[in-house]
């Protein structure tokens, strides 16, 4: 599904940082991968490279047979197949909840208004927020906004979902509702790459946990093995710090 081959990425602003160093990984269809690591480890950059929000300097990223980094690739088409959920939700504040979910369907997928409406209401029901469809994002709680953001991404019928620390900006009591939605998705067989520190979530639904540090994948394995029996010292240190 996603084939990442030797990608590197260096930022020069504000100063030189090697965010990714020769990262290689393969994510199978239907797989749920949790990426974790200390701040500045390159986990978010890794995720953002997958749909080219950041362009990797070298290497290849093949999603569903299409080379994302090839300049000839129509990146908008790729992105429509790759849903993304952000730490800070990034809902469109000038649009209602319903329009947030319906807009890209009509604009990008060229669906009719009726189709988009049906799909939007179905998804808003699924994330449990249909009653707020006419509200504006600013009037929703963080947890509600993040669920709308998930519905917005799902509306494009993506083949992969990327989650960039989806619960980090939330008050503790709202984390649960967002994780519930993500778990449901995982159990439905969605391919997911999640940058998150939620161990409970990782244990319950992840097929694989990747630990990154200093732009490299240090260790990976099943959640069982990863949390109980990590092999690298850096992983052990990290797990000690977050527990």
């Amino acid at each position: 599904m996603i084939d990442v081959q030797h990608i590197s990425k260096t930022f020069f602003v504000p100063h030189e940082v090697k965010a990714l160093v020769d990262v290689t990984d393969k994510i199978a269809a239907g797989e749920v991968v949790v990426v974790c690591g200390p701040s500045g480890s390159g986990k978010s950059t890794f995720l953002r490279c997958l749909n080219r929000l950041e362009r990797a300097d070298s290497g290849h990223i093949i999603i569903d047979g299409i080379d994302v980094l090839d300049p000839k690739t129509n990146i908008n088409k790729v992105r429509a197949e790759v849903g993304m959920v952000f730490q800070s939700f990034n809902l469109f504040p000038h649009k209602t909840v319903f329009d947030n979910v319906a807009l890209a369907q009509t604009v990008v997928r060229k669906r009719s208004k009726a189709e988009a409406k049906e799909k939007a209401m179905f998804l808003l029901n699924k994330v449990g927020i249909a009653d707020k469809s006419n509200a504006y994002p600013d009037n929703l709680s963080g947890g509600q906004q993040q669920r709308v953001a998930i519905a917005r991404a799902l509306a494009m019928d993506p083949k992969v979902m990327l989650f960039d620390e989806p619960t980090s900006a939330l008050d503790p009591e709202m984390i649960g509702e967002v994780l519930e939605v993500m778990k449901t998705l995982a159990k439905e067989g969605m391919t997911m790459v999640c940058v998150t520190h939620e161990m409970g979530f990782a244990r319950e639904v992840a097929d694989r946990v990747i630990f990154m540090d200093e732009g490299m994948i240090v260790e990976e394995g099943t959640p069982e093995k990863f949390y109980k029996n990590p092999s690298h010292d850096r992983t052990k240190l990290f797990l000690k710090q977050i527990l």
């Binding site: 088409k77 429509a80 800070s88 604009v107 990008v108 997928r109 917005r152």
Partner: peptide, 24 residues
């Protein structure tokens, strides 16, 4: 984040400007 959200949904630069950025 607004641009990123719009672009990650598959909107083109022009669509993102027209529907998301300019109105705000």
């Amino acid at each position: 984040g607004q641009t990123e959200a719009a672009r990650s949904l598959g909107m083109s630069y022009a669509q993102c400007m027209y529907y998301i950025i300019l109105p705000q």
